[in-house]
């Protein structure tokens, strides 16, 4: 057995196990972390397919950013573990349908030779060129308009999300650092010129020094 074959089975086994644990773990935080583990092993499988850009993007985007925010939300919510099991039988038909569709789709791809998939030959990578470079070259030449369109749509989504949550509260005591830096001495401090006062020993009404 080659080492890469061994790695494939390792990644696949860990991924299946963690995917199973995502839906069976009692604690939602554990479930999210198992999902992270599943993503990580999926990235490992993609690396074995020499799709290193996709693999690293999966880790960077999903593991490094999306799941962290997800974890935030799950940790902040005080989830009642008992009630989580509540709607299991009610949701089962929908879940089973989606699962069945996924199995059929996977089967279609894996048995593609019966459906004429071989009419679309796999792209041969140019020798000595990294996956990232090849992807970038195609994205920024043949598919530059769709690519830019997608980025504009994402930008609109970002601005919309910011606008939905942005509320200017009147009572916040936030300070603008530029204002703070621009403060001059004369804004805060007044220096008064006055004659100096002679300090004389305090005396009481009879003219003697107090004890």
């Amino acid at each position: 057995m080659e080492f890469t074959t061994f790695l494939f089975y390792l990644f696949a086994a860990v991924m299946l196990f963690s995917a199973l644990r995502v839906i069976t773990a009692r604690n939602p935080v554990h479930a999210v972390l198992f999902l992270v583990l599943a993503f990580f092993n999926a990235a490992g499988l993609w690396l074995l397919l020499q799709a290193e850009f996709l693999a690293i993007a999966l880790i960077m985007v999903y593991v490094g950013a999306v799941m962290v925010l997800f974890l935030f939300v799950v940790m902040m919510l005080d989830i009642n573990i008992e009630r989580l099991r509540h709607g299991f039988w009610g949701h089962l038909p929908l879940g089973a349908t989606i699962g069945a569709i996924m199995v059929v789709e996977m089967a279609t791809v894996l048995t593609g030779k019966y459906f004429g998939l071989s009419n679309f030959p796999a792209h041969a990578l140019p020798v000595g060129e990294s996956n990232t470079k090849a992807l970038a070259r195609i994205l920024f030449t043949d598919y530059v308009y769709p690519f830019e369109l997608a980025s504009v749509i994402l930008l609109v989504a970002i601005i919309a999300a910011v606008m939905l949550t942005l509320r200017h509260r009147k009572d916040t005591k936030g300070m603008r650092p530029s204002d703070q830096v621009a403060v001059k001495r004369s804004d805060r401090l007044r220096i008064v010129a006055m004659a100096s006062e002679n300090e004389s020993p305090a005396t009481d009404s009879k003219g003697g020094t107090p004890l």
Binding site: V29, L33, V36, E52, F53, I56, A57, I59, M60, V63, G64, A65, V68, L71, F72, M75, S130, N131, T132, K133
Partner: peptide, 25 residues
Amino acid sequence: NIDAGVLYLLAVGSIGVYGIIIAGW
């Protein structure tokens, strides 16, 4: 000596935050 070295650094670096979140929680 991998071709996607910088991407690897960014990706693995982004995992580091899990240690802290998990420890905190």
